[in-house]
Design a protein around this nucleic acid. Sequence first.
DNA 1: ATGACGTCGTACCGACGA
Length: 257
Amino acid sequence: MKIATYNVNGVNGRLPVLLRWLEESAPDLVCLQELKAPEEKFPLQAIRDAGYHAIWHGQKSWNGVAILSRYGLPAEVTRVLPGDPEDLHSRYIEAEVEGITLGCLYLPNGNPAPGPKFDYKLRWFERFTMHAAELFASGKPVVLAGDYNVIPTEHDVYKPERWVDDALFLPETRAAFEKLLSQGWTDALRKLYPNETIYTFWDYFRNAFGRNAGLRIDHFLLSPAVDKRLKEAGVDKFVRGWEKSSDHAPVWIELKP
DNA sequence: ATGACGTCGTACCGACGA
């Protein structure tokens, strides 16, 4: 089973790229982030024609998350992150598929920091960590995939010194990620490639992709039951080189049956 | 310190992203 996550940066503007990638990479399950489309503008027909069922939580202009599945309609568990009824951002959706609980997240960027946006990021992170603890305690197979907007270590950024004041790399952000991992989750890409340079995002500016000036901010966290099945993982970096690409590249894992 | 670039909305610039 191949599971992928892809921050598409606009699901409608990105539709040709998304469909081409689905065809070429052929994931079984997909988490999408940054749909940037209201609920009713999700391109369901095109996704269905590509062979996927879908659930999604849209929002006008910003955010928006979706889960695609080749197996049938994902059984939705929740489309909000618990813990704050006032939070109206579409940043989390969770479903049960093929015996796996799949959480698709788009963690807040948090810039500029310090400031209210950074405060929101840390609050959201705390809520997510609480929810993750419950999922972990269930003992079920769980995959938490998406755009975490966290550069976990200095090995996950092309030039760490340029990012020390950035919300993606500040000590509080990294500590929050560490705290989450300490529940027992496996960072799938890092586990398989402990010493590789792995990036999942390259800025549109300054020829960042050409210079490989990237960040690793899209992550797969696996509960032990899924970790045991981890066979392979990677980044579809070639997609970032396509015309009209997102600034993120798709990331995927492959699980043994 | 800023802006480079790209997306979306009601839009011919501003907000936001990372």
